[in-house]
Amino acid sequence: MPGKFSCSSFPSPILLGRLLVRLSLFSVLWCVLAGLDGRSWIIGLPAVSAATFCSLLFAPQQPCPVSFLGVLRFIPFFVNLSFWGGCDVMRRALSPAMPINPGLVRYQVSLPEVPQQVLLVNCISLLPGTISADFTDQCITIHTIDRDMPVWSTVHLLERRVAALFGIRVAGGRP
């Protein structure tokens, strides 16, 4: 399988590096799925090779560099917020008065790259009180379950954390 890549149209050390990174990632994934039984590699080897080939075919670009420390700090932040998101919606669903006051809010994104924006849009749906309803030209339309919640500042905090995950900073912003 690797021979196929070395004779592709642009053989470069960068491509080879990406190939090795993805090959090892998919191999670890296979170990998780199939266990450490050596015989599983009869199917695992073709599967891992095909996955690597497809990922290079469909996403040849290097994804944005991720800061390891940023990821470590992002996980507890995200788990905590999404837990409170679940509690918040549970309270609203179970309370007899059903305290909801929904509405739409727009948010201007300042993250520069598409993968970062996609992560932001997906995380918004798990935050307390917000789901992302549309995303066009740097502007996210957010549906909030309660217009009295501080939607803008919550999303801005999330955006700063996403930026830190990718090792960049975003502008201070305006409400």
């Binding site: 919606v89 929904p102 749906s125 798990l126 307390p128 789901i131 549906h143 379950i145």
Partner: peptide
């Protein structure tokens, strides 16, 4: 939209 709120957030915490 509000139903999506309930389903997405509550069920994901439950699964967590």
């Amino acid at each position: 939209y509000t139903r999506l709120h309930a389903l997405t957030k509550a069920d994901n915490v439950g699964l967590g």
